[in-house]
Design a binder for these strands. Structure first.
Lengths: 139, 139
DNA sequence: CATCAATAGTTGACAATATCAACTATATGC
DNA sequence: GCATATAGTTGATATTGTCAACTATTGATG
């Protein structure tokens, strides 16, 4: 059965499996900072010194504008994010991180971007090969 | 900046990026079948002809038993899943797929396990290398 | 056998997330 | 100036998830 499975199928399933093995604890990690996974995602998308309009955030999150209102309400109430009116268009609210938000973002991202130990245990050749392949996949 | 990033870090970030590129549409895919991502996950975990107790499902989902009650209630109300009392322990409810659940599961998994086109565009060597590396990562 | 502690699943309260519809203020096009 | 489109908000609703409390059942112990 497994011998007849195509390589792309096999690779994809292994990749999915690996990813979920590593990601199973994202909610736990997020809750360390009293954040939900979605809130971590939002903090990631709002870059320091790069305000983003609410609508752009909704696009990036691929969700409804009203949902973003709630997400931002809660982060704003925690002093992590600020709404700012846009100078160009009075309908638009721009979102920026507060200094506290910048600090928390940095801490959270440091944790989230930490590679799994298993990646460090690959040989240098394997690591290089993996990076090369992944770059090609993203082209 | 990028030149000083460790290979494991680089690989992890590329991998995460690739994964989310492919997975951004899981909610959309699930909604084609009028399922939520969580419900898809449940259907995946309940294998045909392999009843699983509620508690085992909660473990596999890494969530609270009461949450599983709700998830199964809704799938049961759609005729996709059945609760069955266990012969060994009267506290235990075993979950099995209905014939309709089996069919839907098969359809959904076929879609979910379909590898991205980009994987098929790698060379045979690259695919083999990727599979080999992923297997090592999962050891 | 009786008692007590542990367990499986359910109920209920609550918060967060997400969709959809309707709304108001604002911008754009004619 | 008017009609249409747009940004964000409000509100209703469903789903998911945690936590606490509960009932029925099981297992361990004396």
């Amino acid at each position: 059965m497994k011998s007849t499975k195509s390589k792309p199928c096999e690779a994809w399933q292994l990749l999915v499996k690996f990813f979920f093995t590593q990601r199973a604890d994202l909610p736990t990690l997020a809750s360390e900072f009293e954040l939900s996974p979605a809130q971590c995602h939002v903090l990631h998308l709002i870059e320091p010194d790069r305000p983003i309009p609410m609508g752009r955030l909704a696009e990036a999150l691929a969700c409804d504008a009203s949902n973003v209102t709630g997400l931002i309400d809660r982060l704003e109430s925690r002093g992590l994010v600020r709404r700012r009116p846009s100078a160009d268009d009075r309908r638009v609210k721009s979102l920026e991180l507060t200094p506290a938000g910048v600090r928390l973002r940095s801490t959270v991202l440091e944790r989230i971007t930490k590679p799994p130990d298993s990646l460090g245990r690959l040989s240098a050749d394997e690591q290089r090969a993996l990076v090369k392949i992944l770059k090609r996949l993203l082209d």
